[in-house]
Nucleic acid binder design. Structure first.
Length: 650
RNA sequence: GCCGACGUAGCUCAGCUGGUAGAGCACUUCACUCGUAAUGAAGGGGUCCCCGGUUCGAGUCCGGGCGUCGGCUCCA
């Protein structure tokens, strides 16, 4: 067989040659360092025969070593997961093992511990020590392809119910034309696991590893099933790499908005209202700037601001379908014998508002925008700083349009979204979510809606992934996602196409034919919730918000008390120019004032002393950039003003 | 909601095996009036998350609740 190496050379080997043979043929050093081979993109064990190339062309072959980056890390992390299971089985007799894949940054393994056994991170040292023994023992990973019946018997005999279930599912899900005959098992030491592979040659290839945390995780991700104990860990080829990884994690934690927010005096939380932020004056400034941005950008795009009630009769929620599907997640109240609910979303209110007017086709699209306050009864376990709250405001709009206008409107929403994200330099990922199992409306309407959204995405040549079944109960949607400081993904914007609410609310417009027609509804939010958006922004900027958004844009630092009057006069001029500024009047040393202002990440520090006072100047210092020299007060004001007006990011 | 951990001053944390609470920062006052990342001294400040229990005695042990954190499930 012929193989093409990364440098373009062609390697000829006998048929049936293994990955080991290939590595050895290239060089003895490589053979020693080899962990696996990658053939036409598929990572395979060294010991396995290389697959015949599909079309007579040479297969592309790459030998994976510890310098192969993620491919190599994934291998040893998967190896480490096996060693973890091996150690846990020995230390906790009766434990049932389920699955243990490599993941971004590490691996996990899920266990069911025997009754009454609870483990936590205090148990890690003992488990790690046992793992270390197996690694030092240099146990080879041996692959065996065995008949399914044999595998089933084996795991049933060991009471490994989860493995039995996995094999049974593999059998069930196999292509009927090619029923499953064998499954692969990997053995290292006395431990054998059902596993697709691949693995490195032996446990000795794991250099450094660390168990990180335990967590609960449902078997097969199904909340109606057994909760297992998941142990997370990671592995690297060197101690230095591990340490760098841990330091990065630590740094990311410093950028956590839950830390930055209170630190910068933006918001806090209190037990008296879990899941709802208390916005301090500085945070409220930031919040209001974002609302102003939405308003300012929406106006020329034809959005009209409206205000709708917070609390509605349950009949409205029955009409919208929320009463059936989401009542448990709404705050319900009652007075004067009427059942009421606080709005968890704005759409029913906007539909109600639309329905109370007459609309001509000439008026469409109607675009109602409202930075509406919403409350959702989120279960306690899901709350997360500003990113998942019970009380929040959305930059929510509802577009009522004709079917012919859908393409343009969705395109307009996407343009608006990208224009917004561009201001902050945010990269978003697009997801198209299609009809969920629990839904309202005819399938034919869903067909049209999904197709329309897909066309809009493709017309603009945008990259997106499809999430089957993740749509809203009333329509499919395009979601825009961002990642937080710890790599978790959060939805910001959404654009949802809905034929259902217009029908349920009997929405109409008068067409050119003087007959009544039903409009289509587009739900959209771009920042998502202002709360979540601020959380993401704080992490994105590491707390160093751009000048236009900074809660305090400039602080005047008097060198001595005799400069206080001058400092105050500079402050007045800054404030008159609509800049958010302060004077540090504490009488501390300049060094101390500078330090504190830098820690508060205030963009500009204006130091004033005898020299500046004389010439109507300030000594300008920019956050993180140091001294910028002496500048006339008027120049500072106009310079900052320009920067604010441009909403520049620098 | 589920699994695990945690909950001490505004913040960050210390408080060993139960004997009635401590530091740094912040804050107040006084002195210093200072030229770009911490001037010094003194002082005020705590239902040790809440409710029960064990005990002569609970911040510390036990049970329940609430909240937070890490995950899982969910997220209109």
């Amino acid at each position: 067989m012929r193989l093409e190496l990364p440098d373009g050379k062609i390697l000829a080997l006998a048929d049936g040659a293994t990955g080991t043979d290939a590595a050895a043929a290239i060089g003895p050093g490589l053979a020693r360092a080899a962990l696996a081979v990658k053939v036409d993109g598929e990572v395979r064990d060294l010991a396995r025969p290389l697959p015949p190339s599909p079309n007579g062309q040479p297969s592309r072959l790459e030998v994976i070593t510890n310098r192969s980056g993620d491919d190599a890390l994934e291998l040893i992390r998967h190896d480490t997961a096996h060693v973890l299971a091996e150690a846990v089985l020995e230390l906790y007799p009766g434990v049932k093992i389920s699955i243990g894949p490599p993941i971004e940054g590490g691996f996990y393994y899920d266990f069911e511990f025997p009754n009454g056994v609870v483990i936590n991170d205090e148990d890690f040292p003992a488990i790690e020590a046992r793992m270390r023994e197996h690694i030092d023992a240099d146990e080879p990973f041996v692959r065996q392809d065995v008949p399914v019946s044999e595998a089933l018997e084996r795991f049933a005999a060991e009471d490994q119910d989860y493995k039995v279930e996995l094999i049974e599912d593999l059998i069930r899900n196999a292509d009927p034309a090619h029923p499953l005959e064998t499954v692969s098992l990997y053995t290292n030491g006395r431990f054998t696991d059902l596993c697709r592979g691949p693995h490195s040659p032996s446990t000795k290839r794991i250099k450094v590893f660390k168990l990180q945390s335990v967590a609960g995780a449902y078997w097969r991700g199904d909340s109606s099933r057994q909760m297992l104990t998941r142990v997370y860990g990671t592995a690297f080829f060197s101690q230095a790499d591990l340490e760098e990884y841990l330091e990065n994690l630590e740094r990311a934690r410093a950028n956590d908005h839950r830390k930055l927010g209170p630190q910068l005096g933006l918001f806090t939380f209190s037990d008296v209202s879990p899941g709802a932020a208390f916005w301090l004056p500085r945070g409220t400034e930031v919040f209001n700037e974002l609302v102003a941005l939405s308003r300012e950008m929406g106006r020329p795009r034809g959005y009209e601001e409206v205000k709708t009630p917070q609390i509605y009769d349950s009949s409205l929620w029955v009409t919208s379908g929320h009463w059936d599907k989401y009542r448990d997640n709404m705050f319900v109240t009652e007075y004067e014998g009427r059942q009421m609910a606080i709005k968890p979303m704005n759409c029913p209110g906007h539909c109600q508002l639309y329905s109370m007017q007459r609309h001509s086709y000439r008026d469409l699209p109607v675009r109602y925008w409202e930075p509406g306050l919403l409350h959702r009864r989120e279960p306690g376990g899901v709350l997360h700083g500003l990113l998942r709250v019970r009380h929040f405001a959305q930059d929510d709009a509802h577009i009522f349009c004709t079917e012919e206008q859908i393409q343009d409107e969705v395109a307009g929403v996407l343009d608006f979204a990208f224009a917004t994200y561009e201001i902050f330099g945010l990269d978003v990922r697009l997801e198209l979510s299609t009809r969920p199992e629990q839904r309202i409306g005819a399938d034919e309407l869903w067909d049209r809606s999904e197709a329309a959204l897909q066309r809009a995405l493709e017309a603009q040549g945008l990259d997106y992934v499809v999430h089957e079944g993740d749509g809203a109960f009333y329509g499919p949607k395009i979601d825009m996602h961002m990642t937080d400081s710890l790599g978790r993904s959060w939805q910001l914007g959404t654009c949802q196409l809905d034929y259902n609410f217009p029908e349920r609310f009997h929405l109409v417009y008068t067409g050119a034919d003087n007959a009544e027609h039903q409009p289509v509804l587009i739900h959209r939010a771009l920042m998502g919730s202002y709360e979540r958006f601020i959380g993401i922004l704080l992490e994105h900027f590491g707390g160093e918000l751009p000048l236009w958004l900074a809660p305090v844009q400039a602080i005047v630092l008097p060198i001595a008390d005799r400069h206080l009057d001058y400092a105050e006069s500079v402050l007045t001029r800054l404030t008159d120019a609509r800049l958010r500024a302060e004077v540090d009047a504490r009488g501390e040393s300049v060094s101390k004032q500078v330090r504190d202002a830098e820690l508060r990440k205030i963009p500009y520090l204006l130091v004033v002393g005898d020299r500046e006072l004389q010439d109507d100047q300030v000594s300008l210092r920019q956050h993180g950039q140091g001294d910028r020299g002496t500048v006339a007060v008027d120049d500072v004001i106009s310079q900052l003003g320009r920067q604010v007006n441009r909403r520049s990011r620098a």
